[in-house]
Amino acid sequence: MSGGAGDGWGSRRGAGGAVLEPSMAAEEERIAKAALAELPDDGVVVLDAGAVTERFAAHLPVGHGYTVITNSVPVAMELAARTDVTLHLMGGRLHRKAGATLPEARELDGLSADVAFVVPGGVSFDRGLTSRDPAEGSGKKAIMNVARRVVALADHTRIGDDRMSRFAALQEVDCLITDTGLHIEVADRLRARVPRLLRV
């Protein structure tokens, strides 16, 4: 599983401005496994596009009868053969490079989910969750709006990375999961801004 989708591909710039390599497989695996603890016993789950949610989907527990809504083609392919999962692929324009649809709010109108797992392109201390593109940001916001709980999944290279389009304040997520590559001082600064921070 290389690259990823939904702001999960291409090089990124960290808080210091240095270009960062996209190879974050071990960190994404830890984040994905930690995120499993945020699942309800059953119910409706929304998975945003991203390499980390692809890993999450691969580890989705069997036999819980989850309904999964996603805009990620790779996530849908991962879960397509699962007879214990009811799968809904969101409509919208296909972002081919990201392997994801860009859903509009009307695509999700009337839906309700227990928890949404969102992958921001960047996490700004001042502006909140950001994306490289306004259409992607709008889709991520629409995903957040249908869920009773929101869990943001962001490896440490995304923290401090302020992208063009802001789609949510830090206080709008219930939990943010990152990895131990995030310096403890930066984690403490972030912990003061989000309701709950996990560093795994």
Results as ranks from 00 to 15, higher is better:
residue 48 D to I: 08
residue 129 L to E: 00
residue 159 I to F: 03
residue 24 M to W: 13
residue 198 L to E: 10
residue 169 A to T: 08
residue 151 V to R: 09
residue 148 R to Q: 13
residue 87 L to Q: 06
residue 135 A to L: 14
residue 37 A to P: 04
residue 124 S to T: 03
residue 136 E to G: 10
residue 107 E to L: 08
residue 187 A to N: 04
residue 19 V to P: 00
residue 44 V to P: 05
residue 143 I to V: 12
residue 62 V to P: 00
residue 45 V to F: 07
residue 93 R to K: 13
residue 29 E to H: 07
residue 75 V to P: 07
residue 8 G to M: 01
residue 143 I to E: 15
residue 181 G to F: 09
residue 124 S to I: 08
residue 106 R to H: 14
residue 88 H to N: 11
residue 37 A to F: 08
residue 31 I to C: 06
residue 121 G to P: 07
residue 34 A to G: 09
residue 125 F to W: 07
residue 124 S to K: 03
residue 22 P to N: 07
residue 1 M to E: 12
residue 121 G to K: 02
residue 173 V to D: 01
residue 64 H to M: 09
residue 84 D to T: 10
residue 28 E to A: 09
residue 17 G to Y: 04
residue 104 E to Y: 10
residue 25 A to F: 09
residue 4 G to N: 05
residue 69 I to A: 03
residue 199 R to P: 00
residue 67 T to G: 07
residue 4 G to W: 03
residue 58 A to H: 08
residue 189 R to Y: 00
residue 18 A to N: 11
residue 123 V to H: 01
residue 78 E to T: 15
residue 177 I to W: 01
residue 151 V to N: 09
residue 71 N to W: 06
residue 182 L to S: 02
residue 6 G to Y: 08
residue 127 R to W: 05
residue 65 G to L: 07
residue 156 H to G: 02
residue 200 V to S: 06
residue 63 G to V: 12
residue 184 I to R: 15
residue 94 L to P: 02
residue 53 T to A: 01
residue 144 M to D: 01
residue 21 E to M: 10
residue 17 G to H: 02
residue 73 V to P: 00
residue 40 P to Y: 06
residue 177 I to Q: 05
residue 62 V to N: 06
residue 119 V to H: 02
residue 99 G to D: 09
residue 187 A to K: 07
residue 99 G to Y: 10
residue 31 I to A: 01
residue 11 S to K: 14
residue 112 S to M: 11
residue 158 R to T: 06
residue 49 A to Y: 02
residue 193 R to M: 12
residue 138 S to E: 15
residue 193 R to D: 00
residue 141 K to L: 15
residue 180 T to C: 05
residue 6 G to M: 05
residue 79 L to Q: 08
